[in-house]
Structures are given as structure tokens and as C-alpha cells.
Amino acid sequence: MIFPDKRQILNSDMIREIAGASISEASGSDLNSEYASIKKAAFAFVEGAVRGDQSYISLENRELAFIIWILVAIDENIITARTIIKARDTAEKQLIGAQHYEDLEEFGRRLGIDISVEGEQIKKDHLYRLDVTDFATYASRVTGSRYRLSNQIVRAGYVYVQNDVMVKILREAFVSFLFGVMDQIRKEDAVTLLRPVSDDLERIKEAYRKAHGSGASMGKGDASMFPPCINEIIKNLESGVNVSHMGRLALASFLHKAGYSEDEIVSYFRNAPDFDENITRYQIKHISGEISGTEYTPPKCETMRSNHLCYMDDDPLCHREWMKHPLTYYEVKRRNRKIR
């Protein structure tokens, strides 16, 4: 089980020793061989993430620490995003399987989230209590009604949730924590410390280039007429940000309705941290009605808004009273251009 530990991740002496550890060394102490296997496991984890390997790989604290330094040294958005998502999913699996609620408490405590249990723990008739601001901060990154504040029991500054919701909150807090720790490590320091493993770093970059080198070729459509929400999703996907399920559904169904082909739609998803071409194609076929028989329409503005996918800012067209749907936006822009 991982227990996020900032001090340990930032312990550069330990990182230096892990980077320098070697299995074949004759004078190999116990610690040296332990470090060597940590190093190996860390690289295997990052490589798995880059390849898009969906299988579960267990993770322990020092491996996670070394992984963070690898990511800072490589400094490639998409590699970072994929690895962090994989670490997140690993932590989530561990939290779901946790035998004692104390494990969740401890995990939360290390992320600065105060959790306590309300009700009878033994009879499984209990809820987790957390601060309403922690809930709002992290739940806002998870799509779905299950995670909306409105649907929770809220009282006197606290939210009371069941296990599955608590796990998702901790998962998102863990992601924030990892990005936060990465910000505290300077790239030059990471490169210097990881010099003994520079070959391994190169190997990962090369693997990444091979898998994604061709770069996404954007569909031919009129992207300049897309509404800001759709452009934001595209921008996030391009830079390797993990877009929510609802966001992906919105984009795919929008592109489909705007007349894009399956191949063109797939190209938009190529940089997603968890991209899997077969699954993506399957889902696009589902949305286009080829499999399901029902053609999906993108969510209306109101739904986009409550799922935190609306980025209207001060776009005047979005602020019109009758503007209720992303496709309307696209249609209006296209029509106006034709007139001109």
C-alpha cells in the first residue's frame, strides 16, 4: 500500500542511491540490492504507463518517489500524465481493497485531508466524514451525479460519504499531491541526480516517440467555429491532460455530429493519457450508433456546466439567452460565415 510521503519523495540522498544502485555490484549490500529492485520496478511502471499497459502493477512508497524524479527529469507532459494516472489508479485499487478504515484515514492525513468515521464501523453501517471544502475541491474533478455535492449528506461544514465516494476523493487528492511535489523538484536537479540512469530515461523517451511520434493529425473540419467548451477539451487532450469521461463523450459525439469520420475522431484522442485505440474505436462506434443503434448527441450546455466542462468565459455567443447547446453554437457560426 502506498502512503504518500512528501519528505520521502523529496529525499534526494535516497534518490541518488537508488539511481546508483546496481545488482551486479560485488560488494552489493542488502540495501544496494533493494534499491536496485526499486529502480527496476520504477522504470517498469513508467514504461508500462507509456505503452498504455492496462494491467495492475503494485507500487510502494520508494518506487513512487523514484518515479516522480524520473518524470521531472524527462519533463514530457504526456509521459507525466500517463504515469500519474496509472499511479492514481493503482492507489485507488489499493484504497478499495483496504481492510481497515484507518488506512483511508492515514492516506488522507498525509494529503492534508481530515477524515473520520461516523456510525458503526463493524456493521458496515458507517459513513466517512470530511470537510465540505475538501469535498468540493476534489469531487469537482470526478464526473457523475454520484460525486456532486448536491447529492450528499452535508451538515455543519462536513460531508458524509460512503466508501466508494471517499476513495475517489482521496484518489484525486493524491493526483494533486503528486503534481504539487513535482513542482518542488527542479528539473536540473533531477537530471543531475539521475545521470547514472540516463540510458533508461532515453529508452523511455524513445518508446514514447515510437508510440506517438507521428503526432495527431487534426480533422479537416472547421475547428475555428467550435464552441469554447469543445476547444478546451481538445486542448486538454492534446497536452495529455486526463479529460473526464463526460468530456470525451461530449467531444466524440460533437465531432460525429459535425460530420467527422471515425479515423478523424480517433486522432483527437491519441494523446489521452490512457489512450487505447481499440477501446476508443469501439466507443466511437457506440456513440455514432453503429453498435448501439442510437446516435448520441453531445450534452446540452446546462449538463456541460454542472459537469465542469463549460468554459464560456466572455464569449458573447455563449452568453446569449437562447444558447443552450454546443451544436447550436457551431451551427450559428457556420451559418453566419456562409452569409458573409
Partner: peptide, 22 residues
């Protein structure tokens, strides 16, 4: 906003532990 029938129903069944909110 975002109130969901089935999820609210689930939460209602938990109100015996602690009561509050929508």
C-alpha cells in the same frame, strides 16, 4: 442542480447515521 433520483434515494437510506443536506 445535479440532484439525481437514484443517488438521493441511496443517501436517504443513510440519513439514520447522520442527517443533513438535500
Amino acid at each position: 442542480n445535479s440532484l439525481d433520483e437514484s443517488i438521493v434515494r441511496k443517501a436517504i437510506s443513510m440519513l439514520a447515521i447522520v442527517s443533513g443536506g438535500w
